[in-house]
Design a protein around this nucleic acid. Structure first.
Length: 433
RNA sequence: GGCAGAUUACCCGAGUGGCCAAAGGGGGCUGACUGUAAAUCAGCUGGCAACGCCUUCACUGGUUCGAAUCCAGUAUCUGCCA
């Protein structure tokens, strides 16, 4: 097997097209040096000032938002998904189009996720509610939810996916994910990993983590191979993904293992419990090379963002701003609320009177409420623009605050306002802006 | 004018003697959503002092231990015939 003899730690000559420059170091509230920092990621398609929130555009579109609007609202980069684009329209189409950015008319930096998330979302996480009393512990994946067919099944070499579009079987492996991601052509790619769930036992997490480690080696090998054979293309950076669930020893070991490989940066993945998020990011930040960027996958709640930044995460992505927007939820500095509520029918104020987004500059809650209730699609667009702007700006403000030395004050103020404004458990309180 | 059929909760629509405060949709209300199987999903949707009670299946009156369901009359609507 060629990848077994490959030295994944050797450097690659074309890495100069990708770089990460450290900026200001965050000081702890007691004045000590912390893991948080600002920085600048340079890619062939532009720079990303970090910390930064990356807009998710799974199928080469940030759902309901034109790329021009994505740029206007301040998003610095877009993250698409290799598995979804491989299924439709096919990564060869994106390759022929000149890459993801050209295909979707986005001139800035781009990311692709490897398909690793789908190992979980279409596999053990496929069933929405896992009833632990009926979990079959006999299989290799002990978070299997019986009673519903899975669309992803893992083995040591890769994953079989059953297409949710037409039922076709598709094989994904580290090599295939790399090939697909190279064809898609994003500036930053993620190594193919296995995402586990919190329901998996420690034994399974250990087994899975070793699989992800071997896959990481194979991804690096195949990445270099493809970089050489596709030499006319811009250099694409590769981030390894740190798993290990909530276990400190596993997380630290994963960081040491992958940190020694020739990755350009790292993703921190896994189903994380909110309470442990900062701690886990902190372990990773301590172990990973300081001069490489760290992307925390799938996070956007204000408390999570601030905690992650404080503990050393540089970039984030999340489907939440656009997904909840399509279900009528909008963010405000005082919490998240459902615009479909009757109370907004004659509320002629903007979604947030502190927001500078296009939606808030031109439209009222009452109008967007009406659009949503009457199933007019522009409601999705308007709320998505707002929500995406809300998170982008929150992270931008955090970056500025690190440089200004006011991060901890901003964190305290932002979080206390946001969660104080949430409806109480009785649901009696309405939005206060 | 004659004959036949209809009338169920906000709307549509099941139900044709007790398991019916009444299926299923829609609509409405509330909530959830963290590397997108997601314009999705879940709960509630006659009233109340609520493991029980009260008022509902066009209206009025019957039959029956018991009626949305059976009978009679009335009203309205729809077909066909004159």
């Amino acid at each position: 097997m060629p990848h077994e003899s490959f030295d994944a730690t050797e450097s690659h000559s074309r890495q100069s097209e990708f770089s990460f420059e450290l900026g200001t170091r965050l000081r702890g509230s007691d004045g000590s040096v912390s893991n948080g920092r600002t920085g600048v990621i340079t890619t062939p398609h532009g720079q990303i000032k970090t910390p930064a929130f990356i807009a998710v555009g799974t199928k080469a579109t940030v759902k309901a938002i034109l790329p021009e609007s994505v740029a206007q609202l301040g998003a610095q980069a877009v993250l698409a998904n290799a598995y979804h684009l491989y299924l439709q329209p096919g990564s060869d189409v994106l390759d022929a189009a000149g890459g993801l950015g050209r295909f979707m008319n986005w001139s800035g930096p781009t990311f692709t996720d490897s398909g690793g998330f789908q190992v979980m979302s279409l596999g053990s996480g496929f069933k929405k509610v896992i009833d632990m009393s009926s979990v079959d512990q006999s299989g290799p994946d002990d978070a299997v939810a019986p009673g519903k067919e899975r669309l992803a099944n893992v083995d040591d070499d890769g994953v079989w996916f059953k297409s949710h579009l037409n039922g076709d079987m598709h094989r994904f492996s580290p090599e295939i994910s790399m090939k697909v991601q190279h064809e898609i052509g994003a500036d930053i790619m993620f190594a193919f990993d296995e995402l586990t769930t919190l329901q998996n036992s420690r034994g399974y997490q250990v087994e899975s983590l070793e699989r992800t480690r071997l896959w990481a080696q194979r991804c690096v090998a195949e990445h270099f191979n493809l970089t050489d054979t596709r030499a006319s293309k811009d250099y694409q950076a590769l981030f390894g993904v740190i798993q290990g669930a909530q276990y400190e020893d596993l997380r630290r070991q994963a960081c040491r293992d992958l940190g020694a490989m020739s990755f350009d940066g790292f993703g921190i993945g896994g189903a994380l419990e909110k309470e442990n998020l900062g701690t886990i990011v902190g372990w990773c930040a301590e172990e990973l090379p300081e001069n490489k960027p760290r992307h925390l996958l799938g996070i956007s709640e204000p408390d999570d963002i601030f905690t992650a930044i404080e503990n050393g995460a540089d970039t984030f992505d999340c489907v939440s701003p656009t997904r909840v927007a399509r279900n009528s939820a909008f963010y405000t500095p005082h919490g998240r609320f459902n615009l479909s509520g009757r109370r907004y029918k004659t509320d002629f104020t903007p979604l947030s009177d502190e927001c500078d987004c296009y939606t808030c500059q031109h439209y009222t809650r009452a109008y967007i409420h009406h659009l949503f209730k009457s199933k007019e699609l522009v409601s999705h667009t308007l709320i998505s623009i707002h929500n995406e702007r809300f998170v982008v700006k929150m992270v931008d403000d955090a970056r500025q605050a690190i440089e200004d030395g006011t991060f901890h004050e901003l964190k305290e103020w932002t979080i206390s306002r946001y969660y104080a404004g949430q409806p109480d458990p009785q649901g009696l309180q309405t939005s206060t802006r």
